[in-house]
Nucleic acid binder design. Sequence first.
DNA 1: ACGAGATCCTGTCAGC
DNA 2: TGCTGACAGGATCTCG
Length: 282
Amino acid sequence: MPELPEVETIVRTLEPQILGRRITSWEAPYPGVPESGAELLPLLPRMRITRVFRRAKLLLMSLSADEAQNGAGDLILAFHFKMTGSFFVHPEGTQPMKHTRLILDLDDGGRLFFDDIRKFGYCRVMRPENLRDWPFYASLGPEPLELSSAELAGHLAARFEKRGVSIKAALLDQKNIAGIGNIYADESLFKAGLAPHRPAGSVNEEKLLALAKALQETLLRSIQECGSSVRDYRDAFGKAGAFQNSFRVYGRKGEKCLVCKRPLRAARIAGRGTVYCPRCQQ
DNA sequence: ACGAGATCCTGTCAGC
DNA sequence: TGCTGACAGGATCTCG
């Protein structure tokens, strides 16, 4: 379930393996991948990977054409990992596996596989100038780590004002804030002492500032730990993250709260498994 | 306009 | 042992 810290870790581990490489060929062994822009795939050979970056939970690659490609222009590849997507650079000659959705062959012989067991993930190929025409991309809220705590709190206050939706659902809504998923929503709400079912509009400024700080600290710490490996997640070197060892509520239903020692409660909020401490989170 | 719930998918695990 | 059902969840869609 790659969220912001996991996608950031994939970017950081993938970049040194593919940045500056030229694509020599591609394979899309599974129908429906890419989900859009398949007509641009023939332009890929000879293109150079000039940038690997993240926005929200998306991993994006910039590709540039060379002189010999006569105005082929630049392209963007956008990947969403959803639950089980992953990247790995395999040695020359490696054959697609059961869940391999896209392969990019690189000029150093490496084969970049985009794998996805559950098929929730996707890839889109587009022109850079069309990135902002993509409704999902255009609607994304701000990056939580690119604002100060006060700015983030102010932004959340504006977005949450008069909203009756639960604070947890509001955090998961990518239009409000980008990159938060189930793990970091639960962990941040616990850290901020906020009950997940509370209406977003009922949270005062002071608590929103605590939430903004909790979000930023939790995300930063997880990035330092190379993300959380709950099940399938691995970075682009195949290595697991370590932040799952620091979970205080996620996945700890029925276990003791690390603060008040009472049992953590489970609920279903916004269709997601939610774990919280009914005493510490109000 | 807003919020809740169903939906997509496959692998894993608990329970019988 | 082998089967069944519950569960995991990001974003979108439908419905009230």
